[in-house]
Design a binder for these strands. Structure first.
Lengths: 218, 218
DNA sequence: TAGATTGTTAATCGATTAACAATC
DNA sequence: TAGATTGTTAATCGATTAACAATC
């Protein structure tokens, strides 16, 4: 069953992951230039076939494919096309749960000055933090969450930077308040209903993986 | 060509990624208990066959497989077996490059109080930071890196939390000082020689991926 | 012994690569 | 037109699942 927009169903997570890498590769290029799948592949350490295959899953805003036969892909068109696919051509509102060091670090990430993601709130449960300012945002009490979600702008994504021990509880609060997607930094598997998506960033797991590979490359 | 230890060659990254998840699943269990692949699968949302297949790539410290036919896997044995595979049964020394908010946040992560990873140094290039203490570690000048690596303990992994603009430069410094594995938080592809491994954590890319999936689940 | 569950082999499925006709 | 490079189909490769004999 097709989706109506020009996208084939069931795109694999692997493809979406690579799309974000394509953006990274393109962002340092001049928008008017054309780049061939061959050159992109070279730069990114992939095969040209894979890139063309990935992109062929989608169609551009206008006609069909992103590329021009004989020329390659125009950086501008490919870039904005991928942005559109990922839904980052518009602003998405974010709240951060947990005003600890990690939450604070994320809040001041230079990437968050881009337009596609906009942090509109930060929450904590520690009384002594509530009310203080952090990168220009007032820290709110977790208990205000429901009120906030009812009265403020739509929240697209909540980033969980709370300790492991309270992560599931916070996730439950967020879900029952109507948040539909979570980026979780706590080192555990958050349980959510089927209509909620969770992405995880697990520093410790990454370190463990890296530790395995470093032994193999010797 | 086999490796001599009981491990088959060419384990896929996917398998290693799942091993870290198996650890997470097991750490909340009683070490003496037995768990079946069926139950683990249930808890983690995988198939039992996949878990058995994954584990069958390796052999335990003693005899052969990790499991006992008819009983399942003893938590203690499986846990320490996976730790051994990942090389986290011993302490690995880490340095953090970049004493900004992110570096500071990582330094105080509760996970770093575990024994397997030990932060032995933190570096920055900003004069006003050098010499200050952070979670009990003195911030050192980047220029001391070579000296540090020559005189201190072995450095197993360097974590890069510097701004994008200087990330490649810092990576080069680390590589030429002899560091063999990097965990990179800067949103770009670090170029390194073949005998160096790099793992990446890209917050922004993860957000973009999540943003794609959240639209699909509606 | 009967029941349970592993470890492994074979079957299926999905993802990557190769090849090439379409076309700029 | 000739040369280049896409988009797509077919071939290959690898990873997951199913099935079952081995064995606790």
């Amino acid at each position: 069953m097709s989706q109506g927009n020009g996208t084939k169903d069931k795109i694999s997570p692997r493809v979406i992951e690579r799309l974000t890498k394509y953006l990274r590769c393109l962002e340092s290029m001049s928008p008017d230039d054309y780049i061939s799948s061959e050159e992109m592949a070279e730069r990114m350490g992939l095969t040209a076939a894979q890139i063309r295959k990935d992109l062929s899953n989608f169609i551009s805003e206008f006609g069909e494919g992103f590329g021009v036969r004989g020329k390659g892909y125009q950086v501008r068109i490919l870039y904005s096309g991928i942005e559109r696919i990922l839904g980052v051509h518009k602003t998405n509102n974010i709240i951060i749960i947990g005003a600890g060091r990690l939450g604070s670090a994320l809040l001041s990430e230079p990437e968050f000055t881009k337009e596609s993601f906009n942090v509109i709130g930060i929450f904590d449960s520690a009384e002594h933090k509530v009310g203080r300012e952090m990168s220009g945002l007032k820290i709110r009490n977790i208990s205000e969450l429901d009120y906030f979600l009812e009265t403020k702008d739509r929240v697209d994504i909540a980033i969980l930077t709370v300790p492991k021990a309270v992560a599931q509880e916070m996730a439950d609060k967020l879900v029952s308040a109507g948040v539909k997607s979570l980026l979780n930094f706590a080192p555990l598997k958050i349980k959510v209903p089927e209509n909620v998506v969770v992405a995880n960033i697990d520093l410790y797991a990454k370190l463990q993986e890296l530790n395995y590979w470093k032994e193999k490359v010797l």
